[in-house]
Simulated scan of single mutants.
Amino acid sequence: MTDDRLLLPDPQNDTYALDGRRIVLVPVVSGPRTCVFALDRTDLVWIGYPLPGLGRLWHADAGPRPAPDGDALALVVGDVRARVLRAVAAPAAMGDVAARVGCSPANLTHHCVRLEQSGLIARYREGQYVRLGRTVRGDSLVELLT
């Protein structure tokens, strides 16, 4: 919170006034960096934050998983992003890539935004599908680190 403003991670950078509404914090079962919020109610604004320590319920070690031994690409870009880069050697629909990579469509979108910002993949619409493909830069990185 700065001054009289609460700053939330919103890629659209919109500004919303509280207009006297209460703020309600809601712990949610989610990934460690997830933040959800609803600003459309007239009586309150709710902000969902990840329930601390939730990962330890399912994993003995809830810390980041190390990249597979000898996988230089995963060591550089991370395991999920390395799997995405490999899965889009030929253009593919996002739903198919999510299934191949083993993550939710929302999680895939998060990683694809970063890969696209880095110039490693391109996203484009083809009919009702969003397709992914590696760029020349992405091809070069995979080739260099594989």
Score class of each variant (00 low, 15 high):
L85I: 04
A89M: 08
V26D: 12
C112R: 04
Y16H: 12
R114P: 00
R86G: 05
F37L: 02
V45D: 02
Y49N: 01
R100F: 06
H111P: 04
A92D: 11
C103M: 10
A62P: 13
L120P: 03
C103Q: 05
G102F: 07
V88E: 03
A92K: 10
P64G: 01
P68F: 00
D40V: 09
G48Q: 04
A72Q: 07
R33Q: 11
R33P: 05
A60I: 08
V76S: 10
L75W: 03
A122N: 10
A122I: 09
G95E: 15
S118W: 10
D19F: 09
C35K: 11
T34P: 01
R65G: 10
L18Y: 00
L85Q: 01
D61I: 04
T109A: 15
L8T: 05
D96L: 13
P50Q: 04
Y16S: 00
L39S: 01
R86E: 02
R41T: 08
Y49V: 14
L8K: 07
G70L: 03
I121K: 07
R65D: 14
V84E: 02
G70A: 05
G63L: 04
H111A: 05
D40P: 06
L8Y: 07
V77A: 07
R41S: 12
V76A: 14
D69M: 08
A38Y: 15
A122M: 11
A90T: 15
Y16E: 07
V84K: 01
R100V: 04
S30V: 02
A67F: 03
R83N: 00
G119A: 01
P64D: 06
R33W: 13
V88F: 08
V88W: 00
R65Y: 09
T34N: 11
A62S: 15
V101G: 05
L108K: 04
G63P: 00
C112T: 09
V36C: 12
L39N: 10
R33L: 14
L115A: 04
V88P: 01
P91D: 07
D61S: 05
L57C: 10
G55T: 07
T109K: 15
G31F: 10
L54R: 09
A99L: 12
P52F: 07
D71A: 03
C103L: 11
P66N: 03
L73S: 02
I47M: 09
V24K: 13
T15Y: 09
I23W: 09
D19R: 13
P91E: 08
H59E: 13
R41G: 12
L115C: 03
D69F: 08
G63D: 00
G102Q: 06
A92P: 07
P32R: 14
G20T: 00
P91R: 02
D19E: 13
V26M: 12
W58Q: 14
V97Q: 05
Y16P: 00
G70V: 02
D69N: 10
S104A: 13
P91N: 06
H110K: 11
P91Y: 02
P27A: 08
V88K: 00
V36E: 13
A72P: 00
Q12M: 13
V26G: 05
P64W: 05
L85N: 04
G55D: 11
H110T: 12
T15P: 05
L73V: 02
P66D: 10
N13S: 14
G95D: 15
P27D: 03
